[in-house]
Amino acid sequence: MAITTERRLARQSKRPGRLPEKPRKSRQKSQYPMWFYIPAAVLFFTLFVVPTIASFYFSLTRWSLFDIEFIGFDNFVQFFREPMLVQGFVNTFIFGFITSGLKVVFGLLLAVLLSSQIMGRTFLRSVVFFPVLVSVVGVGITFRVLMDPFDGLINTALAGIGVDGPGWLTDPSYALLSVAFVEVWRGVGLATLIFIAGIVAIPDEYFEAATTDGASPFQNFWHITLPLVRPAMVTVVILSLIGGLRSFDLIWAMTKGGPGFTSDVIASVIFKQYQAGFYGLSSAGNVVLFVVVTAIIVPIFWFLNRKEADQ
Rank of each mutant, 00 (worst) to 15 (best):
Thr212Cys: 12
Ala197Asp: 03
Leu228Tyr: 08
Thr235Asn: 05
Gly167Thr: 04
Phe271Cys: 00
Pro172Glu: 03
Ile266Ser: 07
Val188Ile: 14
Ala180Met: 04
Thr211Gly: 11
Gly257Glu: 12
Lys256Gly: 03
Pro217Ser: 08
Val188Arg: 09
Phe271Asp: 00
Glu183Asp: 11
Ile224Leu: 07
Thr255His: 15
Glu183Tyr: 03
Ala191Pro: 01
Leu169Met: 10
Phe221Leu: 14
Ala232Tyr: 00
Ser216Met: 11
Phe207Gly: 05
Tyr274Asn: 07
Ser216Val: 11
Gly243Val: 15
Ile238Thr: 10
Ala197Ser: 13
Ile202Met: 05
Ala267Gln: 13
Gly160Asn: 14
Arg230His: 10
Val236Gly: 05
Val237Ser: 05
Ser268Thr: 15
Gly187Glu: 09
Ala276Arg: 10
Gln273Leu: 14
Asn220Cys: 10
Val269Tyr: 02
Arg230Met: 15
Val229Arg: 02
Pro259Asn: 01
Trp185Gln: 08
Ile251His: 00
Pro231Ser: 13
Leu176Met: 10
Thr255Met: 14
Thr225Gly: 10
Ile202Ser: 04
Ala267Gly: 05
Ile196Pro: 01
Arg186Val: 05
Trp222His: 07
Ser247Arg: 00
Ile238Leu: 15
Ser247Pro: 04
Val184Pro: 06
Gly285Lys: 05
Gly160Lys: 15
Ala267Ser: 14
Leu176Ser: 05
